[in-house]
Amino acid sequence: MTSGLWQLVLHGVWVTVQLLVLSALLGGVVAFAAGIGRTHRRWIVRFVAGLYTEVFRGTSALVMIFWVFFVLPLAFGWQLVPLWAGTLALGLTYGAYGAEIVRGALIAVDPAQKEGGIALGFTPAQRLRKIVLPQAVPEMIPPFSNLLIELLKGTALVSVMGMGDLAFSGNLVRLALQESAEIYTYVLLIYFVIAFLLTRGMRALERKLKAGVGRAPVKEKAVAAAEPAGAPVAGGVR
């Protein structure tokens, strides 16, 4: 392989990473919105969030990409830049999977924690932000880590639409060299390395978040009410 071809591959890596970061951000926002929506008090919010998750989980990511690239411009007159079209399709599809993770983690929080919040007169938003989420988020990290790997693998799909990501540059190199074993081995290895780095990063994040659970905020004085997990010892401080 010549250096020119390597440059092509590196550019592909850059596009893949960009797409991964953008769609992970969109997917994360959508996942939290839909996941929290599914535990909302009003049935209409639960229904809309549930409909979104079922539809986007039900259909295939590749079909969704085709739809965003071909149907959206015709039907609504929105012609998106390929990067944004890919981000939209991937973010919405994987966001729907993420919504299930968020919902699962939210209902897994001990009901007594929520009741404690009610007893202390917290508003629903405060309960969510100060009591439920800090305990639920660390539990979401391992499944989110798996989902992130799925998303990384999903980004290869945009190459079908001619976007110059890593898989696409692999195809170009194959056409240039008329030889496929070498370049595809490299491409697979690069994907593997990215996935490995992602899992490591997520594991570090999980450790960091778990260490913060049950501690009082730094700037305030430690009061018993700020310790969600500290119920048995709450009366013991003299």
Partner: peptide, 22 residues
């Protein structure tokens, strides 16, 4: 682990183009 963490799409290309060469 390697197969699980790499895209199915690229694996498809790999099998489709490399196996005939072999």
């Amino acid at each position: 682990e390697f197969v699980r963490d790499t895209p199915l799409l690229v694996q498809l290309f790999f099998l489709f183009y490399v196996l005939p060469e072999r």
